[in-house]
Amino acid sequence: MAVRASMGRGNVVTATASAATGVWGRAEQQDFRSRVRGCLLGGALGDALGAAVEFSSLADIRAEHGPEGVTDFLPAYGRRGRVTDDTQMTLFTVDGLIRAQVRRDTGAWHPPSDIHAAYRRWYATQRDWGPDERRQDAGWLAREEWLYAQRAPGRACLTGLADETMGTLDSPKNPDSKGCGAVMRSAPFGLLVGWEPQLVFQLAIECAAQTHGHPTGYLSAGAFALIVHGLARGDALDGAVQRALAHLATRPGHEETTDALRYALGAVRQGLPTPERVASLGEGWTGDEALAIGLYCALVAEDVHHGLLLAVNHGGDSDSTAAVCGNILGTLHGETALPPAWLAELEGRGTILELADDFAMEMTQGPALHGPAASAPAWLARYPRS
């Protein structure tokens, strides 16, 4: 089943808004915006905390930073608080989702194509020196100069997006790749709270196959999107995981991802959380392991601060596992639960907030911004239909 125009409009229902009328009350809009902000900022915080130790072993982390390991931002890419390709690609996922909603007015609606175009705009940031001001169809995000920095982008993401051909589930890019480069960018799909879970899952895996063609690579992304989707709708974390497991069970090649989620759930019952227990779930280089580690740390977290530090202090892909954990905890608790001292140093915080608020406004008030008959020119300048 491909994701096409049969999908529900993303501004019609949440767990708290009326499914019958599609009307969002003020309190529901504020809660949703807080969860969107929490998801994107929380993921960026985890990403920035892990950026300096992404390729370090646990022994090296402890030797350099003491027995507690990482306890705060460390200098990475020139200063504290810098993010990596994980956050960059997540932001372009959000940009693509907004553009997909805007393009629906034209009748030419195929969300995977809009996400692919967004990822190609990210790819341009890794190739070009800076924004091309002549491209009026690029939108505002692609004109943010700070995004034109290479922060250890994944090989599968670069090769998968190097040409205009879009990978699909039937003909995926990098069919042997099950790296975490798809799961780490897929939280925004879960913020489509007006969509049915099976369609969120389908969209996430179709877009993951644009760079990561192994079933574990794209199914872990779909499972992650479903977990975030449940939380954004107000579900408990354990319930959201169970729903993801149920959807995984229907897909060929799900075993590695299913086992990873079950290992994460089982680890919660094995005693107090430690870096060694995190290490028992893997290193996070593959999608299933990154998801398992991020999920486990969210499940046992005393608060966001504790969960993110647990997700960073292990030998492996620390920025991706902590980004996944941050996406989960930020969606679950909202932006006010995030540590303010870290937010104050976070690179690109203004851009992330601006994009999060645009996404929340599009999902809750889209018809007031654009439609077949009339549209706000400023909105179309930010998110062109072309």
Rank of each mutant, 00 (worst) to 15 (best):
A149K: 09
A149L: 05
Q150P: 00
C157D: 10
C157F: 14
A162H: 10
D163I: 04
T165E: 13
T165P: 00
G167K: 00
G167I: 03
T168P: 10
L169R: 02
S171N: 13
K173N: 14
N174M: 08
D176H: 13
S177V: 10
K178I: 00
K178W: 10
G179N: 07
A182M: 07
M184L: 11
S186V: 01
P188L: 11
P197H: 06
Q198W: 03
L199I: 00
F201R: 07
Q202V: 00
E206V: 01
A208F: 06
Q210C: 12
T211W: 06
T211Y: 08
H214E: 14
L219D: 01
S220K: 06
G222L: 02
L226R: 02
I227Y: 00
I227V: 15
H229D: 08
L237K: 11
D238Q: 13
G239A: 14
G239L: 09
A240H: 07
Q242E: 14
L245K: 05
H247Y: 15
L248Q: 05
T250K: 13
G253N: 10
G253C: 11
H254K: 08
E256V: 03
T257N: 09
D259A: 15
R262W: 07
R262Q: 15
R262D: 09
Y263F: 12
A264V: 05
A267T: 08
R269V: 11
R269L: 13
L272E: 15
T274A: 08
P275Y: 08
E276Q: 14
V278L: 01
E283S: 13
T286Q: 03
E289A: 12
E289T: 11
A290E: 03
A292Q: 04
I293H: 09
G294S: 08
G294K: 04
Y296C: 00
